[in-house]
Design a protein around this nucleic acid. Structure first.
Lengths: 328, 328
DNA sequence: TTGAAAGCGCTAACAA
DNA sequence: TTGTTAGCGCTTTCAA
């Protein structure tokens, strides 16, 4: 292993100087800097992270806790975040909670003990607040929590967009299948839906179904909606899994989408765009979310405070794929 | 911050003893152990990872490099692996290459420099061999590479299973859409298909299409197959994305699945099982893969050599969802 | 602008 | 079985 000492010797300087060069200190003469750089290159030197951490008590490591990495939305988020942090020389440690609050607590604790510099959290739907207010920066992603700093999409705008879109196609009985409203995103999506349908005069409580962000619930809720005396001509789901469940419930009843009924998902995962030409979905700006999240985190780590405690992303779009007016 | 020293003082022992307790050394009296344990608990002490790393030159950190974390198969693999390593007190750093060989090389390099103890790699389809034979343990997952230690499913068996299954339902014109055969899994899946169809006397070159593991290619290939003079009555894809592409190509031609044509995927992602009752898929034993991978890695890290250089998982199953005999 | 040196918290070798 | 001590490789203060 090549150490700072070796570089110093090779370049005819001292460890202090080498360290200064490494850390971009301005108090190094140009000659020294060049000689050191040359030596580093020549010896193929890489600073020892453990030693740096021990001295500076910073690990250049962040943790990411997601409820379901299997969900392509969170997969895409993890990818974008990893890439972003990467660019700042930070590694990202992954933890998946499978929507279990207990596992989330464990993960929070273990990552804290590991000594990560910061923690990104997409809280479980059943999270009320974080049990152990760790002393390291915590940034929520997608789903917000109390007054923790975080980045989230303008979910109200998202469903509002969807309602307007469907209304524009002539739909009047627009239902919604919403996630657990203990979760900020679900609550906000419901709010956007309610506000907009009310404004259009087409709101009805009987068109709302609340439950887990799952395929199974999407299917079940859709079946209930189809059993209503006058069934909806369009449905807005809170995520793509629910939307696909709804899709299959319709298929099971011999209804064609979108000819007989329109379905709109949320997240805009590739899944949705591929699933069928007929599943429209509200797209979240995933990489923007990652960029802002990383910025927020680095700010928090560097300065201890975040300029903007929370970031709201407003560039949601609706992935129009194939739509038709209601058939009745 | 509480240090070893504090614990020693509090428990009336010395740092040596505390360290021994921490590392499970047998040379500690029961009294001393108890007093130390009590102090650790009392002071809420957590050993400093950086200091440990510096001394032992081990980070208890592993890297995972996947081509596409957005794909739920790799998502599930990452989750299982993280959980498994976790149980052994190892953290998992995630890197996604988006099937880019260049990004893979970068990731390999960067993670190596970070000082992870081992690297899990699902090589890009275009990987021929690893450019920089790092001096840290490398274990391939799913896709194998040269003679690197790794864990893979018995892919031949998988497609063989699928062919037999479809043949059992009466299918005779069984096509396949296969991934890039530079990739071990694709090559093996093709091999299993070819061997089995030959044995049954139903092999035909014109029923084979090779290309990327993507939705787009699956769709394109299916369209080509449907243009054949006598079209296949069943198709086996190399992964679920391709299968879904194929599904949509059929839908686009007004063909119903499985009534008019049967489609079988590979990976058994939730996606497939949810996608529609009509997409059958060969399920890989993902968590077994993770368990074996972790075992292999820990062995490699601990002893420097792996008992079994490569592990072949044979418990693939076919997720029968809804099948019918060919309509012609 | 530089070099020398202290020490971050831990493990392991040595002595007792 | 135990305590003492020498570093692991680095950053950073202090003098020069």
């Amino acid at each position: 292993m090549v150490t700072l000492h070796d570089v110093a010797k090779f370049s005819g300087t001292s460890v202090g100087t080498v360290s200064r060069v490494l850390n971009g200190s301005p108090h190094v003469s140009e000659v020294a800097r060049l000689r050191v750089l040359r030596a580093i290159d020549e010896l193929n030197f890489t600073p020892n992270r453990a030693a740096q951490s021990l001295r500076t008590s910073r690990t250049t490591l962040a943790g990411l806790i997601v409820p379901d990495i299997t969900n392509s939305f969170f997969g895409a988020l993890a990818r974008a975040l990893a890439r972003e942090l990467w660019a700042h020389d930070y590694g990202l440690i992954l933890a998946d909670t499978a929507e279990s609050l207990e596992k989330q607590t464990e993960a929070l604790d273990a990552l804290g003990k590991r000594g990560v510099d910061g923690l990104f959290l997409v809280p479980t739907t059943s999270t009320r607040d974080i049990a152990n207010p760790l002393n390291i920066p915590l940034v929520t992603l997608d789903r917000t929590l109390a007054d923790l700093p975080g980045v989230t999409s303008d979910n109200r705008q998202g469903t509002s967009l969807a309602v307007s879109y469907l209304h524009g196609w002539g739909h009047r009985r627009i239902a919604t299948i919403v996630g657990p409203t203990t979760c900020s995103t679900a609550a906000e999506r419901l709010e956007g839906y309610a506000t907009t349908t009310r404004a259009l005069g087409i709101y009805s409580r009987s068109l709302i179904r609340e439950g887990p962000f799952s395929y199974a619930f999407g299917k079940q809720a859709m079946e209930e909606l189809l059993d209503e005396p006058t069934r909806p001509t369009a449905v807005i789901a809170s995520n793509d899994s629910q939307a696909i469940g709804a899709l299959h419930a319709c298929a099971g009843r011999g209804l064609r989408v979108p000819q007989d009924i329109s379905i709109c998902g949320f997240d805009g995962s590739e899944l949705a765009s591929h699933l069928s030409p007929s599943l429209t979905s509200v797209k979240q700006p995933i990489s923007t979310m990652a960029t802002h999240g990383a910025r927020l985190m680095l700010e928090l780590i560097e300065t201890g405070t975040a300029g903007s405690g929370a970031v709201l992303l407003t560039d949601l779009t609706i992935g129009e794929s194939c739509s038709v007016p209601p058939s009745h």
